[in-house]
């Protein structure tokens, strides 16, 4: 039993290495003289300088940030409403929760295609900024909702009774008691919204219209063996560093709520 457990835990450590070693390798290559050879060697910042002077990735990055901010805001508002409302519902709670979590059960490319078909044929929405926001929201909202429900389902409604008893108006109860206590879930919802939107690819492929997001740009560049590839190494290294920083922030936040 103990041996088996050791083998399995080693295996899981191996899978974690499978995630991180390539990413580190990519970072190593991004400062190497000949990144396309696949082997590092000869430290240089020339590719980063080239990235700074290359403007192709700037517009996609701006679009991605704009979309991610919209998705984050939508996720926070929607998760706040649903996170507070669902625990207070009775019969409708389970079916509505399942409907909200449904996108988790559909492969990304399939969701992308269906949303494209549905928006295009049924709702008549044109593909572009808002179809991207909507499809990213559909993907991120289940995660935002879970993050919110973790907090709201443990929320003690007696505290609101106590505040009312002490004379607090409904507005005061919301802003002074409920909101501060739900803040970790709210920030979690926003982070999920931003990060999942910022790195979303399979749905974007179908609903992007003429807009190019950063993951779409990356994918196009990675699929073609163009001379731009070393720049993509640099760009992705930077993105990975940013993602890691955001994850550290999120872990810190979760750590604070569980304490």
């Amino acid at each position: 039993m103990a041996t088996l457990r050791f083998v399995l835990l080693s295996g899981s450590a191996g899978i974690l290495l499978l995630i991180y070693v390539p990413v580190l390798w990519l970072a190593l290559l991004s400062v190497g003289a000949e990144p396309l050879s696949g082997l590092p060697g000869g430290f240089t910042t020339v590719w980063y300088l080239a990235l700074a002077s290359n403007r192709n990735w700037v517009q996609p990055a701006i679009s991605s940030i704009e979309i991610a901010l919209c998705v984050a805001l939508l996720c926070m508002l929607a998760a706040l409403a649903a996170g507070r409302g669902l625990p207070r519902m009775r019969r409708a709670r389970v079916p509505i929760t399942l409907a909200f979590l449904l996108p988790l059960g559909i492969p990304g490319t399939v969701t992308g295609l269906m949303l494209f078909a549905g928006y295009r044929f049924v709702l008549g929405i044109h593909m572009g900024f808002w179809s991207l926001v909507l499809s990213h929201f559909v993907w991120a909202f289940p995660f935002a909702l879970i993050s919110m429900l973790v907090v709201t389902s443990r929320f003690d409604h007696g505290l609101l009774d106590a505040a009312a008893d002490l004379g607090a108006s409904p507005r005061q109860r919301f802003w002074q008691i409920e909101c501060p206590l739900l803040m970790p879930g709210l920030v979690g919802a926003g982070l999920f919204g931003f990060l999942l939107s910022f790195t979303e690819l399979p749905r974007s492929i179908f609903v992007s219209g003429a807009i190019q997001t950063l993951p779409l740009f990356n994918w196009a560049e990675a699929s073609t063996q163009s001379s731009q590839v070393p720049l993509i190494f640099c760009l992705n290294t930077l993105l990975t560093v940013l993602s890691t920083a955001a994850s550290v922030a999120m872990i810190g936040l979760l750590g604070r709520t569980t304490r």
């Binding site: 995630i19 990413v23 999120m250």
Partner: peptide, 18 residues
């Protein structure tokens, strides 16, 4: 935990390329 959270937010193409 960090190792398990970061992959969630990595760019898919970056991972594949690496």
């Amino acid at each position: 935990w960090l190792c398990l959270t970061v992959p969630f937010f990595l760019d898919p193409s970056a991972r594949g390329l690496a």
